[in-house]
Design a protein around this nucleic acid. Sequence first.
DNA 1: TTGTAGGCGTTATCAC
DNA 2: GTGATAACGCCTACAA
Lengths: 343, 343
Amino acid sequence: MNRSAKRINIKDVAAQAGVHASTVSRVLNPDTVSMVSVAVAEKVIKIAREMGYQPSAIAAGLRTGRSYTVGVLIPDLTNPIFPHIVRGIERTLDQEGYIAVIADSDNSRKNEHAILDSMQARRVDGLILATAHRKDALVDSCIAESIPIVLVNRTTDTHAATEVINDDEWGIGLAVEHLVQLGHRRIAFLGGPLDTSTGRDRQRAFTKYGRADRFEFDPELLVDCRAFTESEGYRGFASLLDKGREFSAVVAANDLLALGGYDALGEAGMQCPRDISVTGFNDMLFMDRLRPPLTTVHIPLDEMGVKAAELLLSLIRDPAMETTSVKLAPRLVVRGSTAAPKH
Amino acid sequence: MNRSAKRINIKDVAAQAGVHASTVSRVLNPDTVSMVSVAVAEKVIKIAREMGYQPSAIAAGLRTGRSYTVGVLIPDLTNPIFPHIVRGIERTLDQEGYIAVIADSDNSRKNEHAILDSMQARRVDGLILATAHRKDALVDSCIAESIPIVLVNRTTDTHAATEVINDDEWGIGLAVEHLVQLGHRRIAFLGGPLDTSTGRDRQRAFTKYGRADRFEFDPELLVDCRAFTESEGYRGFASLLDKGREFSAVVAANDLLALGGYDALGEAGMQCPRDISVTGFNDMLFMDRLRPPLTTVHIPLDEMGVKAAELLLSLIRDPAMETTSVKLAPRLVVRGSTAAPKH
DNA sequence: TTGTAGGCGTTATCAC
DNA sequence: GTGATAACGCCTACAA
């Protein structure tokens, strides 16, 4: 193909086919092709193909006000739970002719706002946010401007937006019950940041089961970590050990915290699960290959992405749609990090 | 904000500021703001901000022919090497006002073509491809149509496109030398698919060091896997054991193959590194937490993304730019999967 | 320094 | 069933 070859547009095709541009437009649009005679339609399609015509989504977008593009905001793509969500989203969007603009905010609120601006400039038809905090200005402003959004994985206290989240209460229940059945009575909790729904809900669920006497509840055995990271898990677990209170198991609010716990445990000369049992949450990639393999709560991440994309498409098509909340059921995966307590 | 609020456009701002739209346009464009008097510029900026004006990148794109959008094609986002590359890409693009449309082809050539069409329809300014095969029709067609592209991680036999890849020969050399220094003489190679540059180059490098007598080279100890997956690694390693030839170490062409090797090894009742030493390639997340922790070749993935994005931006700005090849240096990370041979 | 006018490639609304 | 026309929102010669 010639370097200087001008890009073929709808008029070129129309001229070649001996029809008007609007006819070509009608032929190429599934909704309007029925207005055109079959003979003309076939001819136009043939010629368009021959000429290698590629409609400009930009021009169409300018005219129609729809970009068939969706923004996806991720706090940290290198956290292995997100790629699965993203895949589910993309597969679903793709089937409907939409494309995803993915942006990684690197856990920075400032970045989030810049990214939102950038996406709005590109006139995305809607947004999927995996970055929600319990109070979230970004979510609020999207709602205020009635931009179609769906929250995924985390949500806000207001539940004002359509959301697809995990059933955290159920998930923590699975972990707790598993430990209780093994015979654990003194169970600690390595919690996540309380400004996220996941951090708060998981802690709340744990407390609830404790207060319901599923085990010997001791508030001193609750530790909050400032972030869902290995280093915070390490710090949190170490501070737990420092307290000198007795416990035989730890429920971590996510896998990364559990990994940090592994480190602190090893450093203290203890072994998992011989001395302490540990459960995680999320079932990230390779959690089955650790030493010991991590017993954890598996979340249907791909499905989460699929559902979020489906809901967003509905919302785009019908902005008046009621905001809905989808809660997905996790399941427990028992591996080598949990065992009966020593005595 | 009112639900029915019309989106503010450049004319609205101009009217409010008592100037013409073209003046507003000039003010908001860094390249032309100097043409406008400071007083007017300040006023326009103030009013634009007050009115919440957000320029339409779509309209600007239609006019200028540039979308400030770049497509990124990834074979499988859930492979943990890619998120790091993507992050590097995004951070770099973002600084220049570009945004990335990420698409996961799910390792399917057919998907790749559909995605390319979709991206071309959106008039992306360029493309970063992590999906290259040694012969790659997609790459060829991009070059034929002079779409700016940069290949990342893998390349084609033709080297016809600008590329940012790892120095695989060097990396394999690091692994081999490490094993040789430990005293290994009979070393096997668990290779990747030969239709990718990484698969081929790593195998070639291994063979080269063998033929140069760095160790006792035995062609029977070369196994090709059909994909860079754990299951293929398992299959490959098992077939190696079936041959019954003696060897004390295995160099795997990537970490996933090595993991599959771990499985086959365990199943055969052998231990790593006691019976067989294993090295990986890539240094994926959590490779330090396996049993045993994997000795592997670390690749600067983030830097790879950064470089790729930088080159693409140069290419977009100067399409006549010479195609260049950047090779990044990996480093060896010694962990617990390698040790001196038994006797 | 600022305004005017035309057009980027579509599609929606007319008219025929 | 098809064609003509205007408009989406912006940028950029060119004119003043």
